[in-house]
Design a protein around this nucleic acid. Sequence first.
RNA 1: GCCCCUGUAGCUCAGUGGAUAGAGCGUCGGCCUCCGGAGCCGAAAGCGACAGUUCGAGUCUGUCCAGGGGUACCA
Length: 606
Amino acid sequence: MFQEIQQAVETTLRAFCQAEGIPFVAPQWKPIPFAGEWGVSTSFFQMAAEEARAGRGTGKPVPVRAQELAERMRNQLRGLEGVNRVESVKGYLNIYFETGAYARRVVETVLAQGADFGRGAPKGERVMVEYAQPNTHHSFHIGHYRNTILGEVLARLLEFAGYETIRASYPGDIGLGVITVLWMYDKFYKGQEPQEVHARGQWLLKLYVEATALLEKKENETPEETARREQYEAERREMYRRWDAGDPYVRDLWLRTREWSLEELRDILRRMDVKIDVWFFESEVDEPAKAIVEELVQRGIADDERPQGGAVIVRIDEKLGLKQEKYRTNVILRSDGTTLYLTKDLALAKIKFEKYGVDRSIYVVDVRQSLHLQQTFAILRLMGFPQAEKCYHLGYGFVSLPEGAMSARRGRVVLFMDVLEEAVRRVLAVESEKSPEMNEAERRRVAEQIGLGALAYSMLAVDNNRDIVFDMDAALSFEGHTGPYIQNAHVRASSILKKSKVEGQKSDLGLSTFDYELTRHEIELIEQLSRFPQAVEQAANEYRPLVMAAYAYDLANAFHSFYHAVPVIQAGQENVRAARLALVAAAKQVLANALRLLSIEAPEVM
RNA sequence: GCCCCUGUAGCUCAGUGGAUAGAGCGUCGGCCUCCGGAGCCGAAAGCGACAGUUCGAGUCUGUCCAGGGGUACCA
């Protein structure tokens, strides 16, 4: 925020180097890593090393020379506006800002910009984030949740950082798994249907598990069992053939049951406050995918081995002229003429580029599909799409359970709705003792906000590439490094502001001067507030929600410490009270901004 | 075989090549006459191994060791 000071120092430094015949190295400014004061620092090690390399050195060791340079630079810097003092320590030049002016500047900026504080300038680029791709005819489990919260927060970060952002969902609504459920339903459960949205969605998973058991080859089967299993298998294949042929009965059954899944999905997304802009269904890109196969054969990118009874393949490395194996070879059309996941992704990418004008395309997909997506992007390059260079696979580690990997076909999954229900139950247990005055409806609403806050934060506070072993107790903890800890900071800030008004005291938030000796807690809190815009920028640039999650915790931590140690309403002097109230308002604002980016609610009470 | 990811405190995780490697949980010890104790303050405890690059390496490179994932007609 004090760019002009850094500019002035840089100018002086350049002149100094010129006069002394020392190679100029642009300073790399960093915040001074000591609590208690604000400022920026830069080191002179690089400059000393450059000097030695250029043969103009003094023969002294680099650290010694760096300190010497820092000291001489310090002597050049006098009377800088807004600077309290300058020091040279261990090869570093530290420039400390004037406390009152800096504090005022930060707090006023936050309060003036409000919900927009930290927003980046428009980037002039349209980006699509694809996430929330559960298969239909299953139920939404905790792994889908990680995918969805990650994608949503990424979309919010990119949007706030200045990108035009489109949210896309791509449910897998067709495939052998889906057909298996249709077969099971049609054969054993026709006409049945639970009424409640989530019960119905979860029921489909139950059918899938049962069907898998019936269709799986077992040890020591009797001849009758084998015959029955093979009969079932034939029926399932026939079901798939009829779907493919557009048989009205099967199509109707498929659409009706698919809707049960989508109703459940939409309800979960609503609870998560996720608003998808564009829905792509896997079944809808099947025909375009077949067209792409023919196009690739025509253009000589794909090799057609159908005449020999084979498939259509792309020898990606060969076509790219790579000597070493990297993308390998992939099938884009099975020998029976059906498309694959890869083929459909090619068709989908084409639609994203051509129909939606996407410049940058991000795929939030499990890291295990990394090779497939790299292959997709490589073929898009072969097809000549310049946007292929800006396709990015955000791979994240998968969610497993303490007893091992989740398995839908074996029914070994943790459903999101079950976790949410448990979360609400646990929050309510805490709430009833902490906030007995809340009414029933509000209590329930806040419980969901806090429960979801805990769950979301537990997912977001882990870096993308890490696997997560889902532990209910850890995910739903409300103490320490958690979502509720941050929400609680927001609640406390709200509480102070409310009380200050109840007492009829007016604080002119815009004109707080901070013309008193600030405590280290105030300084640390203001430091955190000033860091928010950089945190947004970094999190968006690196596609890492973790950066924002960590920032939000640091800010909340600074606020809690401040809250405990520094009186606000009870501050003795009116100017101190007014300044601190403004600081609390600013902290509340930035906490809310950070939580919003994390897709976590910022409640007034809890 | 080849490719990718991960080894940091007892456990779970942070740590844009820079000053004294940080949190949470757990353990131990403090703090409610005070704006909400879902909180605050403090203690003990750590970079898988070995080389290399660099003024400087938890961070970059290489080789090992250990764990996980992926490797053309699943998604």
